[in-house]
Computed example of a mutant assay.
Amino acid sequence: MSTVEARPTTTSITGAMLGIPQNELVPSRYAVRVGDIDVLVISDGVLTPPAESMATNADAATRSAWLDNMFLSKDAFDWALNAIVVRSGAQTILIDSGLGEEYPDFPRAGLFVQRLEAAGIDLAAVTDVVLTHMHFDHVGGLLAEGVKERLRSGLRIHVSSAEAEFWKSPDFSRTAMPPALVELARRASLDFLREYGSHLRRFDEEAEVAPGVVVTRTGGHTPGHSVVRLESGGERLMFAGDAIFPVSFDHPEWHNGFEHDPEEATRVRLRLMKELAANGSWLVSTHLPFPSVGRVAAAGNLFRWVPVWWDF
């Protein structure tokens, strides 16, 4: 088992990062320390995709029953949108970048850059970016107006080779994305490759980004989808991107409508949850409810989400 402290601590993060602006009613960051590595979970708000997209291979009655049990709408459900900032050694690493200005029909998301600033994170201080994949809600923050000009010229963006190649001519035939989101995903990925192609640092299967920070391709959700594992002083944290969703603990077999290879995504999901249950690692995932910090416990043939006890 990991020797991670029983609850995350905020003591390693500077006071400026924890100051809450007067006009911010709900804090949008949560600090964790993994050995010598500082982690800040940043919320980019909430998306509201159609409810059927959470379980495209489930019958409507079963899906509705699960939504009822979770007190969620049967039409569109709230989907958290999280990214993290990691400080390891001399490097400041942004993992994913939120929605940005890509889709105004999600009015409760898209303020990632402002939330970084509220947390005291200077874009010019970011040395590296890791992309779990290139869906619009993961690259959009870097496409927002004025962001690229504030980033350092030597910025390194780590993404799997399979992911970068896929988005040159993406295939949506196995997804169940609404047509508007298909076109958005296609456009945002091409815009990103055009704007940041010279900054890409591609890897095939795995790469060490910084001391104790390793990104590994899993595939499934997209061909090059990746997860990031942090390890320091015997403590661990995994940022799982879009591999694990809230419904995954009750129904890991349910296919998400945004998955490009649903069967492989299910195999990846089960493999990662077994790993997390076995080693006691903290888990942070893009669409788990903020602050999205917790552990995975085995529960018979399924899994149980054990959220962190908040440390104020």
Rank of each mutant, 00 (worst) to 15 (best):
245 F>W: 15
265 A>R: 01
276 L>N: 08
158 H>Y: 15
122 D>Q: 13
172 F>V: 02
159 V>H: 00
77 F>I: 15
276 L>Q: 04
246 P>I: 03
278 A>N: 13
207 A>H: 04
160 S>E: 05
26 V>A: 04
243 A>Y: 04
204 D>N: 10
95 I>V: 15
181 L>D: 12
284 V>C: 10
282 W>Y: 15
226 S>C: 11
214 V>I: 15
94 L>V: 05
259 E>L: 02
226 S>P: 01
134 M>A: 10
57 N>T: 08
55 A>I: 05
63 R>Y: 00
44 D>K: 10
62 T>A: 15
76 A>Y: 04
243 A>T: 14
74 K>T: 13
272 L>D: 00
126 V>G: 09
151 L>A: 02
25 L>R: 08
285 S>E: 11
60 A>Y: 05
236 R>T: 07
245 F>Q: 11
100 G>R: 01
21 P>Y: 08
286 T>S: 13
89 G>A: 03
8 P>T: 13
142 L>P: 09
46 V>W: 01
38 D>P: 00
244 I>M: 12
257 G>V: 12
219 G>P: 11
222 T>F: 04
103 Y>H: 09
133 H>F: 05
128 D>F: 06
149 E>I: 05
92 T>L: 13
221 H>R: 10
8 P>A: 13
203 F>P: 06
226 S>I: 02
132 T>S: 12
243 A>P: 05
32 V>G: 00
130 V>H: 04
229 R>V: 06
7 R>L: 12
31 A>Y: 13
254 W>Q: 04
22 Q>V: 12
89 G>I: 10
54 M>E: 06
154 G>C: 07
238 M>N: 04
94 L>E: 06
298 A>W: 02
289 P>Q: 08
259 E>T: 09
142 L>M: 14
73 S>V: 08
80 A>G: 04
229 R>K: 05
128 D>S: 14
157 I>A: 06
226 S>E: 06
160 S>A: 15
207 A>W: 01
162 A>Y: 04
42 I>V: 14
